[in-house]
Design a protein around this nucleic acid. Structure first.
Lengths: 159, 159
DNA sequence: CGCTTGCTTCGAGTGCACTCGAAGGTTTTA
DNA sequence: TAAAACCTTCGAGTGCACTCGAAGCAAGCG
């Protein structure tokens, strides 16, 4: 269960003082490792419905359960949700993320496939960034145009 | 009709040798200024359906017509479609673009509003780029992890 | 003890941005 | 002159990613 492959999917489950920790409604408490679904809701901003849906469609690894069958999310799971959130922002379709999750579940034999998938994703993200920077340039151009026009209007008063 | 405001929306209608010209299926021919809808389809990759839909929802400026009522797109219109395409890539909802288009149609009184809208958009785009770069960092981290693991597996053979 | 939280399954609804097709007409072009 | 391209209006369909509600039951806590 705790293969190197899985470790690769989470990076740091126990460490907490990573680099940046942006879009969490509540900060994740230290030293704990099994969260109820409502806690995860609070941390991630996702709904319980969505969380269960992610599980249903195979986007999540196996989530631990309490002895009575309630979900207990680990830090690892939270890290995964973090990654999913990031990938979602890149516009990656859920189906692709599911594919990746499947590879992880399939175990150590899928290293190369996962590697390639990550590289392809990186290429996409880079391309996306380039597009956005292109757009930003256009926006900047327009904005400076408006700024100039605004100054002209301001000083000359009409026309 | 040909106010400075409108000019701001197109930048260069007559000039053609701008900086970059990425996602056009066909390059836009020089020296011409009224294209049929099928030409625009070829240039933009949008369908005629979508082009007419854009018009219906108010996303386009008024498109010229031939004396028999057929659409004749100008370079200006193509530039606008270019901008729309870029903004679409940023994830801006169509409704917001329509709002912007409305401001342009309303004329010179809306300078400030447009300026502000552009600045807000720029902020969004910048934020989006930052997010993506964040994601890219995660991806790079993972990729190097996999690369290392792959090397280890390759040399040690299993485990 | 009762309220809150959680579980399951089911299926329907939402919002966005198209996307398509059809009907019935006019115009352009080879 | 015939085929191809264009026009209009209408309405329905698609794909994605949720999103919600309800029914009916089990567990936890204060």
């Amino acid at each position: 269960m705790d293969t190197t492959a899985e470790a690769a999917e989470t990076g740091t489950s126990t460490r907490t003082g990573d680099c940046a920790a942006p879009p969490h409604r509540h900060r994740r408490p230290d030293g704990q490792d099994n969260y109820t679904i409502s806690e995860v809701v609070a941390f991630t901003g996702l709904t319980a419905h969505t969380l269960r849906w992610y599980e249903r469609i195979g986007l999540m690894p196996h989530i631990d359960r309490s002895h009575t069958g309630q979900r207990r999310y680990s830090n690892r799971d939270l890290d995964w949700l973090d990654l999913v959130g990031k990938l979602r922002l890149t516009g990656m379709p859920v189906a692709d993320m599911v594919r990746y999750a499947e590879l992880v579940r399939e175990g150590d034999d899928t290293y190369i496939a996962r590697f390639e998938l990550l590289e392809a994703t990186r290429r996409d993200v880079k391309a996306r960034i380039a597009e956005l920077q292109d757009t930003l340039a256009v926006l900047d151009h327009k904005i400076s145009f408006y700024a100039d026009a605004g100054r002209a209007l301001g000083s000359e008063r009409s026309r």
